[in-house]
Amino acid sequence: MKHLLTLGLLAASFSSMAHEGHSHKINPEALQKAPFVDADYVTGQGKFTYKVDLAWGETPNGKPALGATHGGVAIDKVGNVYVSTQTGDGIIKFCGDGHVIKTFGKPTMMSHNLALKEENGKEFIYAAFNNHQKVCKIDLDGNIIWTIQGPPAHKAYQGEKVRYKPTAVDVAPDGRIYVADGYATNLINVYSPDRKYIRSFGGVGRKEGGKFVTNHGLTIDTRGEKPLIIVVDRENRKLQRLTLDGEYVDTPTTDLRRPCAVSIMGEYTAVAELSGRCVILDKDFKVISILGDNPDPKQHHNYGVKAKDWKPSIFTAPHGCAFDKDHNLYVQDWNSTGRLRKFVLQK
Results as ranks from 00 to 15, higher is better:
291 L>W: 03
309 D>T: 01
335 N>D: 13
251 T>H: 02
312 P>I: 07
328 N>S: 10
256 L>D: 04
257 R>I: 01
305 V>Y: 00
270 A>T: 05
307 A>Q: 11
259 P>E: 09
247 E>G: 10
292 G>Y: 00
317 A>D: 03
256 L>A: 05
295 P>E: 04
263 S>P: 09
294 N>L: 01
295 P>T: 05
239 L>A: 08
302 N>H: 11
282 D>R: 08
324 D>V: 02
289 S>T: 05
298 K>E: 14
303 Y>C: 00
268 Y>Q: 08
313 S>V: 09
288 I>D: 06
289 S>A: 13
252 P>N: 03
258 R>S: 14
276 G>W: 02
277 R>K: 14
307 A>C: 06
336 S>V: 12
241 R>N: 03
258 R>A: 15
256 L>T: 02
296 D>C: 09
295 P>K: 07
271 V>Y: 09
344 V>W: 05
305 V>E: 06
296 D>Y: 10
256 L>G: 00
294 N>F: 02
312 P>A: 08
340 L>T: 02
283 K>C: 02
334 W>Q: 11
277 R>L: 13
248 Y>F: 15
343 F>S: 03
250 D>H: 01
253 T>V: 12
315 F>V: 00
342 K>V: 04
294 N>M: 01
266 G>L: 12
297 P>N: 11
284 D>C: 03
321 C>G: 03
287 V>M: 06
309 D>E: 14
300 H>P: 00
288 I>R: 10
248 Y>Q: 05
286 K>R: 14
295 P>Y: 07
345 L>I: 09
284 D>V: 01
254 T>G: 04
310 W>D: 13
266 G>R: 11
257 R>F: 13
341 R>Y: 11
309 D>P: 03
290 I>S: 10
255 D>K: 15
340 L>C: 08
347 K>S: 12
327 H>Y: 15
284 D>Q: 13
263 S>N: 11
311 K>C: 04
263 S>T: 12
304 G>P: 00
285 F>D: 03
